[in-house]
Simulated scan of single mutants.
Amino acid sequence: MTQAPKAELEIPLEDEDADPLFEKADALIQRHASFAIEPELDDLPVLTDVVETPPPALDAAPTTEPAEPTEPDAPLPDLAAATAAATRAEADRLAERLVLLDSAISRHIQEWVATELPQLVSLELDDLAERLQATAASHLRATLLPLISTEIADTLDKGPEA
């Protein structure tokens, strides 16, 4: 069962407008492809990963210095993590929108191929049939008719053979 496409995703395509639109869509997808592709894994933990602190080295002397007091205006580590999470969420939303756009474009292409392409092929085949018929008739007049005319003339010139 096919569902009607959402009105906001429909893009009216005219023959002369289709190619530039597809080029722009392809450029947009290529420009933002890095958001849709999972980054290679590295040693940086993700916000949801549990990070364990490594045990202190055996040869290191324990420090008894008090921790430096934090300034009230200093950014908190949670703020950086929240900013990173918000950036990742925005990238995910953009990736989802690009996937929706890609599927809408694919659907439009499939619908066009299913409806328009057969009509174009039919028109071209009709044109080919007309050209072939005209060429064949012209060739027949140029080559076959003189042979038939010669055969008829030879038969009539010989007269009745009895």
Rank of each mutant, 00 (worst) to 15 (best):
Q3R: 11
E52H: 05
P39D: 14
L58Q: 02
T150E: 13
E40Y: 01
S103R: 14
W112R: 07
I105W: 10
H108M: 13
P56S: 05
P20D: 14
E14N: 06
A57S: 11
L147Y: 04
L117C: 03
L128M: 08
L79E: 15
E52I: 02
L94C: 10
T2N: 10
E52A: 07
K158T: 12
L123R: 09
V51S: 02
L58F: 06
P56E: 04
R93A: 15
H108D: 02
E8W: 03
I29T: 07
T135F: 15
R141I: 09
L41K: 15
P12T: 07
D78V: 08
V113R: 06
E38W: 03
L58T: 04
L98E: 06
A114R: 05
D42Q: 02
P66N: 00
L125K: 11
L9C: 05
A27P: 00
A27V: 00
R88T: 11
R31I: 01
T64K: 04
D43E: 12
D43I: 08
E23M: 11
D102A: 15
R97C: 11
T2W: 03
P146S: 00
T70I: 09
H139S: 14
R88I: 10
F22H: 02
L41S: 11
E161G: 00
P45E: 12
D157H: 07
A27N: 10
W112T: 13
R97F: 08
A162M: 07
S34A: 14
E38N: 07
L117P: 00
A136L: 15
D26P: 00
D19N: 03
S138L: 14
E116L: 05
V121E: 04
R107T: 14
